[in-house]
């Protein structure tokens, strides 16, 4: 692990899971624009979550941004 910061004591509280409900996605393309590290789009413009599950530490803000801008509420975060 880089750095010497102590491991957070309540690690489970610090994990964030991201989930995309493909049925709800209507291709507004907000997540891909705001968080391209987490989302891609397919040939039809529908969102694709690149990795289901845990969000890497450096991308949590982007995950929150993507979720907070989805007009269809298709993105959910848990453990945040």
């Amino acid at each position: 692990m880089p750095g010497s910061e102590p491991v957070p004591q309540q690690e489970t509280d610090d994990t964030m899971q991201i989930h995309l409900d493909a049925e709800k996605c209507q291709g507004h393309n907000r997540c891909y624009a705001l968080a391209p590290e987490l989302f891609d789009v397919d040939d039809y413009g529908q969102a694709v979550l690149m990795e289901e599950g845990d969000v890497p530490d450096g991308l949590k803000d982007k995950a929150r941004l993507a979720a907070a801008n989805c007009p269809e509420y298709a993105i959910t975060l848990t453990g945040d």
Partner: peptide, 11 residues
């Protein structure tokens, strides 16, 4: 709709 989506997809 599916027919018209590809030419208007982001990429």
């Amino acid at each position: 709709r599916r027919m018209l989506l590809p030419p208007f997809a982001p990429k």
